[in-house]
């Protein structure tokens, strides 16, 4: 699986915020069906890189290659159109809407014919589709009718991930999905990540938690000071090695 071509690749991305260089010629790649962990110290450029690849940030220079074609991903909508979805740290859910409404927000299924043109939605089919999407991930959602704001953090996380996975047929970015979760919920999220990858979707997983990285990823890419400084196959590396690469004690390019 790791021998296939990357579905999404970044080459030499650079982005400055005033005098601060957030990305300094960063490279990145992810292949279909694999889980890539993106790690690095605070300020290494992880979130900036994800924003650039998900259409939330323009870069000053560098190329983004999606399925062998150079693309400009300049908005979340463009990213969505390519099948790239992101689960943000704040989840980007509308708390007053229910899980189904959130899953389809901005991409509602309209009723056929005139009613659809008048703006009427096909709530029944959206509900059905959402239910099967949640079931597919084994996500527990307390109710399809309650506002997500009334649900627990784990449930909201599950909804946000299910939404991203439902729409992403190529790449999903998960920005610190386990940061605010308890032990059991974390295990659920990690399992979900594996499940998503097994459907052939590339998963990019940002985390500070080395055990989680070791548990779930196929490869690990290390960012430091806006650059990719190392890439490892997870099975060939250790936590000590990863920490060393993050802090700059070592550096190699492999795998």
């Amino acid at each position: 699986m790791t021998d296939t071509k990357p579905v999404l690749e970044a080459r030499g991305l650079t982005r400055r915020f005033g005098s601060v260089t957030a990305l300094d010629g960063a490279d990145f790649d992810v292949r279909p069906g694999e889980v890539v962990a993106l790690i690095g110290d605070n300020g290494a450029g992880k979130s900036t890189l994800v924003k650039a690849l998900s259409g939330n940030l323009e870069v000053d220079s560098g190329q983004v290659i999606f399925k062998d074609v150079v693309r400009v991903i300049d908005s979340p909508t463009t990213a969505s159109a390519l099948g790239i979805e992101t689960v943000y740290q704040d989840l980007a859910l509308a708390p007053h809407l229910d899980p189904v409404q959130n899953m389809f927000l901005g991409r509602e299924t309209m009723r056929p014919g005139l009613a659809g043109h008048l703006g009427f939605m096909d709530n029944r089919s959206m509900r059905k589709e959402a239910r099967s999407a949640f079931d597919k991930l084994g996500a527990t959602v307390r109710s399809l009718d309650a506002p997500v704001g009334s649900m627990s953090g784990g449930q909201r996380q599950a909804i946000a991930i299910a939404r991203a996975v439902h729409w992403a047929n190529e790449v999903v970015f998960l920005d610190e999905p386990t940061a605010a979760l308890g032990v059991r919920q974390t295990a659920n999220v990690l399992e979900t990540i594996r499940r998503v990858a097994s459907h052939g979707v590339a998963v990019v997983f940002i985390s500070h938690s080395m055990p989680h990285v070791m548990e779930v990823s196929d490869r690990v890419q290390v960012l430091r000071m806006g650059k990719r400084v190392a890439t490892y196959r997870t099975e060939d590396t250790t936590m000590e090695e990863l920490v060393a690469a993050m802090t700059g004690a070592t550096g190699q390019v492999a795998a």
């Binding site: 084994g138 527990t140 627990s152 784990g154 308890g182 919920q185 659920n188």
Partner: peptide
């Protein structure tokens, strides 16, 4: 709300 999660008996199958 994180600490409350246990009360809803697990979030994912």
């Amino acid at each position: 709300t994180t600490p409350e999660e246990g009360s809803s008996e697990g979030d994912a199958a």
